[in-house]
Structures are given as C-alpha cells and as structure tokens.
Design a protein around this nucleic acid. Structure first.
Length: 790
RNA sequence: GGGCCGGUGGUCUAGCGGCUAUGACGCCACCCUUACGAGGUGGAAGUCACAGGUUCGAAUCCUGUCCGGCCCACCA
C-alpha cells in the first residue's frame, strides 16, 4: 500500500480543507432525526489579528463540535462577527484619517476595515480546521442583525425596563463616551493627598479636609465627619466656607467616613467618586456640574474654567497655597477608577450627569442568579463569579454610547417633554424621519436619538440568533453550550443571560464552559512591550494545524490560565509524526479480515477498551488535556512501544492473521479517538487505510464504543511486559543489542498458566530459545524473578 | 478587606481514600531492531508546600498556617 514516508502538513491541510468544503460535511441538517447540539459561538471582536486566545477558543469549539458529531448529534457550529466598537473607530480615525463627524463616509470606512478583519480571522479559522457551518455566518453590523437588536430594545422599552434617565455616568474624557460599570475598574496609582483648610463660618477656626482631587473644589457641596469623632463634635451642623468661591457648605455627620484616614474630614464634590453619588443622594445635596465632556472645567469653576483637570489641580493648589490654606501634601498610592476595559486607554474616569439610555438590570438580579443555577457550569466554581458580580451590582446597565459605529438606539423623543417614540426597525433616528411629526403629548418637535448601543447589546443576543429564534424558529433554543473566557463572565455571560431571559423567560444555554487565558511563555500576559507574544501563524506555518491545536489543548485546563509552552508544541508535533509512522507500519501489516485473538492481542484490546472508556469520560467533562494525554500515552507507550514490538516477530515471520487484525482494530479506533483533536492527520490516514470500510470522512464516523476491559488478559499482558522489561534491562546492562539471542531463561511467577500462554511470545520477542518455569533469583520486578543463560 | 482557584522530581503534568505516586521535557549510560534518531532500552532524580486531625489506611477528606494566581470591593 502506498504510504508516504513523511507527513507533509501543508500539502495535506490545503487538500483536506477543500475536500471538506466541497462535500459540505459540516452543514447543520435542519431536518435530521438526530438530537441537535447547538453551540452558541463566539462572535470574536473583529479588531486586529487573531491571537493565541482566539485559537484556543476556536480549537475547543471545533473539538467539541467534531466530538459531538461522532457521538451522533446534529451539530450546529455557526460563526458570527462582533463588529461594532470603539477600537474599530479609533483604527479608522488613525488609518484612514477620516473624522467621525463625516458620518456616512466614516461608517463606510469602518465596515471596510471590519471586512478585512473578518477575512483575516476567517482564513485562520479555516486553516485551523474550524468545522463551522459557514452558510450560517452572521455579522452584527448588518441591517438585519441591527434590526433584531432594535426590536429587542423596543420590547424592553414597552415593558418599562429600558428608559432614558439622567444619572451621573462613568465618563471617559479620552474616548469621549459613557461607559458601563463592567468597563471600568480600579487601578493602583501614585497620587498626592492634599490637606486643605476650610474656614468655619462665623468663627476664627477652620476644618482641614484631605483630598486627592483639589480641582473639584468648585463642586464642593458638603463636608463629612464621622458622628463619633470627638475632634469635630462641635462643628457638626455648622457651616464651612469653600475658599476662593466663598460659598457656605454644611458639615454633616456621616457614619461611612473613616476617622482614621487623612484628617477624618472629607469633602463631597459632584462628583469625585462613586461614594459622592451615593452620599449626595442620601443627604439630598445639590449638584454642581463643573466638568465638560472633554475633561475641561466649565463656567461653574469660576477662575478655573477652561482648564483641564490636571491643570486645574495645580492651579487650585497654587491659589490655596497662596492663601495659606494648604496645610500639607503627602504622597500616597490609592486606587483610581479607570477605563480598564481598554488596555490602551486606562484613562481616569469622571462622573458626569447625563441623559442616558439605561436597562434596569438591577431589578433582575435575583432572576439572573436563579437562571445561573439552572445552567451547568464547567468548572462549577465559575458560577460563583457571576453570582458575586450580580450581587455586588449597584448600577443599572447604561447602554448608550456617544459613538457612530454601533447599532443606533431606535428611539425618538420630544425635545420639550422628552416623550419617547420608538422607531420601526431598522431605523437610524439620527438620519431617518420620526414616525410622528410632533409630540403626541405636548405638540413640540420630535428629535432622533444620535447615540448608538454598547457593543455588548449586540453580542448578548447571539443565542437568539444562532438558534434561529430571531426568525421565529425556536426549536433550537435554548442552545446547548456557550464557551468563553472567565475574563468576560461579568460582561458577555451576564449580559447574555439577562437579555435572553428578558426576551424569552429562559436560560440562553444549558451549559457554559469557561476557558482560561493563554499567557506568554514567561507566565505573564502576552504584551508587545514585554516581548512575550507568540503568534499562532508562526507554528501554523512550521508544523501545521494539528500541532497548533494539540499544543493548546495540552495547556487548556478548564477555567485556568496557562503560559504558552514550546515544549507542548514540540510534544504535539512529535506525536503527529509518531502517529504517522505507526500508521505507516500498520499499512504494511494490518488486515481487516477477522481472526481469533491470541493472549497478547486480548491484552492490547483490553487496554484499548479502557482507554476509550477513560477518554470518553474526560471528553464528557471537557477535560481535553486529560483525554488527549490518555490517547497519547496509550498510542505511544502501550500500542507502539509494546504491542507493535511484541507482534513484530509474528508479522514478519508468519503474517499472523490475529496480529494483523488486531492492528487494524486498534489503529482504526485510535484514528477515531484522535479525529476531533487532530482532524487533518487522522483524515489523511483514514483516507489511505480505512476509507473503503466506512463513510467518506473520518469525521462522519461514529465515536468508538468502549467495550469491557478484560482483567485476566491484562494481567497476562502485564506479566509479559515485566518479563520483557527485565530481559531488556539485562541486555542493556551488558551492552548487548536488544535482538541478541539468549539460550534460556527460568521464570518464577505466581501464574504458571499465564506464563505458558505467553511462552511463545517471550521467545519470539526477546530471542530466547528456551523458557522454563521454576525458581529463580537473578532479576526481579513486580514479584517476578528470572534467571538468564546467555 | 471579601470571594474563588491552586501548590506533586529541575520544569510541566496525571492521580482526588487503598498495589512500590502517572507520564512528558531536561539529564546520564547504552542500543543501532526491516514504521519512526522527530527513534528504542535502561537509569538517576519526589519527606506529593507546612502543621495538626478523621480513618485500619491520606497526595487524595477536614481544620489551621505559609506561598502563588485570579476576581470583586467607595477609604476620600
């Protein structure tokens, strides 16, 4: 049989990708009798180049899809693209030099850029062997998709869950947009704590407050001290004078103040941080808005108007200093709220009161927690993350973004009374006509919303899209499985559960699988500046897709981060070669004609059965690294190192039909076990050796049945292994070639019958002329003793 | 500060109540066997983080300590 000496991944992969595509093997069959398995697949964000994290993600999805197909499921593995987003806008501004004020032109450029990104991503997925049903591809920037997003938003509006309200929002002055709570986080920063004196009204005394934000002085509306703080007991209820502005503010007792920090006195400005918002509400204080959206101070800041936050800080301190009101300054590290969702922004967040569209998510916290309980989490403990997040949430979901490349918020409202009129999807209220000319309430002019949606609004309804629910088919909803990273549990997983629940009343998926992050080889996050970035293309070019996949599968423990490892890639590549060589050997010696088994055959078949059992169990638990390692160990160390070596003498000398058939059975099973992991090399072997006995592709074969392991046969096999190992050791220690002849050996073991069964094998494998049973003492292992006569 | 996860030869890893603790990489010695040197055989290397406890029996279960990692949290 023709079987090339070397496996050429590049040639094979190109050929098989075409072969699979031409035959549409991976199309979802809508009329199939088989149970459906729907994977809620990632719409990867289409910005930049795919990285190792994407590749792990795809590999897992594809692995699951291929495995489930072999298990008899009608698998739907669709693919979508999450297009909208700030990074794309920024790229377009920079690359094309188009300003977003030229909206139509700008959007066109965004789409062009996105198309390119999709092409780049898709080509890598295809090369990796991603077995998606490409006929079901979708993009979040199509009118069809956006129309559905808008429809769900209008539903929420009608139910009174989506509203336009004024609220201080997280505002990034650098990106010029509001943000959701999930997009911001605290970052340790160096800063200065200023001790500022406020004169007490009608007194010679003063009170000293400590703050890191002196520039917010114009917005000061109160001073707080702890109710039990003796230092300030006599000042509670009195008024302090805001320096420079000569405004009076009340000194109020507030139990949340920490008397141990700074001076124990804190001033409230609208708004310096989240507690300011809480306290302002609690004590019904006024709001002085001093910040513009670009991060400069406005007219309310008096002499500081027009300055940036940073400049104002210096100026205020200077002026207070001149007045003798700066008591002291001290350096400190504190936590600053920053735009953490975007690694290359990380700008400090300001709070600006604004009218925003908001989904009242908090109301549904208990429902989301209940639904999380109905979903099977892998690993289980990741559910805690979601639950903790939902419990700690104290803000609703602000969905409006002051951007252009996004799904338009589908509402119009009255310029005077703010009465809201929904549009008819698809609608772009920034350019389309409102459905009514004037406000039905007050007769004033109706204007269109110009904001667009947060990107998560698009991507949180993918289960409704992939299942066909959005087109009125709901047979496939809820979907079977979502796979995603733990870093976006509080965003993607949470928002998806919430949105799908609000739309359908049920869970979006039955199971969720959490993958870890792929770190650099040094164990740190991959960053260009750290020089620890490994590009998937590099390995893909060198060793092929199967190696890339297995290299990552070995790292991928459920929910755990792992550093990229060249060793594992090397390991994977060696195994591809090993499998190829094993198959090459088998191609010359195996046969599909059944024949009765001999003891050694029964042993390997039992070991094989056990392997199938273990691997299947690991696959069901999504422990892919364990599953692969089990197959690897069996193939290399039991099948190749032992079984094949044990039967060579039978194959070479007498073409033993039992060995030939056993070889066939083992390899066919191995190929099928490995097919989901290494789709290319297994398909190539299948086409060469097994195609005539089965379906047109190994990926259409069924998953092997395990059968029952045979304990007795395994014991006999172990006895043979031990004896062979002892004799190899004997030869090795005497620097003899392994195929050196021995005249006789005497074996002392418990089971004389077993020894009798394998006597011929011992003689054939180790070139021993005579095997005797009896007392021995020269070599010993596992309670078996041997004497050797060279 | 709260929560979660983990700590097994030099490095990575399996085992998660019961045979002498799995395997890989690396290391040492050897073999040259007609699938594979991207081989093969043999070997050295571990008090399974530490301390208690439960049990006939603990790497495995419980408690505490130490050390890492991640997530969350308003100390201005």
């Amino acid at each position: 049989m023709d079987f090339p000496k070397r496996y050429d991944p590049k040639e094979v992969e190109e050929r098989l990708i075409k072969f699979w595509e031409e035959n549409s093997f991976f199309r979802f069959d809508p009329v199939s009798e088989k149970p459906a398995f729907v994977i809620d697949t990632p719409p990867p964000f289409t910005s930049g180049v795919p990285h190792m994290g994407h590749v792990l993600w795809w590999t897992w999805n594809d692995l699951i899809a291929r495995y489930k197909r072999m298990r008899g499921f009608n698998v739907l593995l669709p693919q979508g693209w999450d297009c909208h987003g700030l990074p794309t806008e920024l790229k377009v501004e920079k690359h094309y030099g188009i300003d977003k004020s030229r909206k139509e032109e700008f959007l066109k450029a965004c789409r062009e850029w996105t198309e390119k990104c999709i092409e780049r991503m898709k080509s890598r997925m295809v090369r990796l062997g991603y077995s998606a049903d490409w006929s079901r591809e979708y993009s979040t920037d199509t009118e069809e998709y956006m129309a559905f997003v808008q429809k769900t938003l209008i539903n929420l509006f009608k139910k009174g869950i989506l509203k336009r309200t004024e609220h201080p929002v997280f505002w990034c002055t650098k990106c010029g947009t509001s943000l959701a709570k999930a997009e911001v986080g605290y970052v340790e920063r160096e800063g200065t704590l200023y001790y500022l004196r406020f004169p007490i009204s009608g007194s010679e005394k003063h009170i000293t407050i400590a703050t890191t934000r002196p520039e917010l002085l114009p917005a000061c509306v109160a001073i707080f001290v702890h109710p039990d703080d003796e230092r300030y007991a006599d000042l509670i209820g009195k008024k302090a004078i805001v320096p420079i502005f000569n405004r009076e503010v009340e000194i109020i007792a507030n139990p949340d103040v920490d008397p141990g920090f700074g001076t124990g006195a804190v001033y409230l400005c609208t708004y310096g941080d989240e507690s300011d918002i809480k306290w302002q509400k609690r004590y019904s204080l006024p709001c002085v808005r001093i910040l513009n959206e670009d991060g400069t101070l406005n007219g309310n800041a008096g002499p500081f108007a027009g300055l940036s936050v940073e400049d104002a800080r210096i100026k205020v301190v200077e002026e207070l200093g001149a007045m003798g009101l700066v008591e002291r300054e001290e350096r400190l590290t504190h936590r600053v709220l920053c735009h953490t969702e975007r690694q290359n922004c990380m700008n400090p967040i300001e709070f600006i009161p604004k009218k925003q569209w908001c989904i009242e998510a908090k109301r549904f916290a208990d429902d989301v927690i209940r639904l999380a309980g109905e979903i099977k989490w892998n690993p289980e403990h990741m559910k805690t993350r979601l639950v903790n997040w939902v419990r700690s949430m104290d803000w609703d979901w602000i969905i409006s973004r002051q951007r252009v490349y996004g799904t338009p918020i589908p509402f119009f409202y009255c310029e005077k009374c703010e009465f809201v009129v929904p549009g008819e999807p698809f609608v772009d209220p920034s350019r389309d006509k409102p459905p009514v000319e004037t406000c039905p309430e007050c007769g004033s002019r109706i204007i269109g919303e110009t904001d667009v949606c947060d990107g998560w609004v698009d991507s949180s309804i993918t289960p409704l899209v992939v299942s066909g629910y959005w087109k009125g088919e709901n047979g496939l909803y809820p979907t079977s499985l979502r796979q995603q990273g733990h870093d976006i549990i509080r965003t993607w997983a949470y928002y998806t559960i919430l949105r799908c629940y609000l739309e359908t009343g049920t869970v979006p998926w039955r199971e969720i699988l959490i993958n870890g992050m792929i770190l650099g080889p040094d164990g740190r996050e991959m960053h260009k500046s750290l020089g620890n970035v490994v590009e998937p293309d590099e390995i893909l070019e060198k060793h092929g897709a199967d190696t890339v996949r297995v290299g990552l599968i070995l790292l991928g423990v459920l929910g755990k981060d792992a550093g990229f490892s060249w060793k594992d890639t090397e390991f994977a590549f060696k195994f591809v070669t090993k499998l190829w060589n094993v198959s090459r050997f088998a191609s010359a010696h195996m046969s599909n004609i059944p024949a009765p088994e001999k003891p050694v055959d029964r042993w390997i078949l039992s070991r094989l059965a056990r392997t199938v059992k273990d691997v299947t169990k690991a696959m069901e638990e999504y422990q892919f690294n364990v599953a692969f390692t089990k197959i690897h160990d069996f193939v290399w160390h039991e099948f190749a190192d032992n079984y094949i070596e044990f039967v060579k003498y039978r194959l070479y000398d007498r073409e033993d039909p039992s060995a030939r058939y056993t070889l066939y059975r083992c390899l066919f099973t191995i190929i099928r076990l490995l097919a989901p992991f290494m789709p290319f090399v297994t398909e190539e072997i299948y086409q060469r050796l097994f195609r005539s006995d089965g379906p047109p592709s190994v990926h259409l074969c069924s998953w092997p049945e395990s059968g029952e392991p045979d304990g007795k046969a395994e014991k006999t096999g172990e006895l043979l292994k031990t004896i062979v190992s002892l004799l190899r050791s004997y030869k090795s220690s005497r620097k003899m070639p392994l195929n050196a002849k021995l005249s006789s050996i005497t074996v002392e073991c418990e089971d004389r019958n077993a020894l009798f069964e394998i006597e011929e094998d011992i003689r054939g494998i180790m070139k021993v002329e005579k095997v005797k049973f009896g007392e021995a003492s020269e070599l010993e292992a596992d309670g078996i003793r041997i004497d050797v006569r060279p």
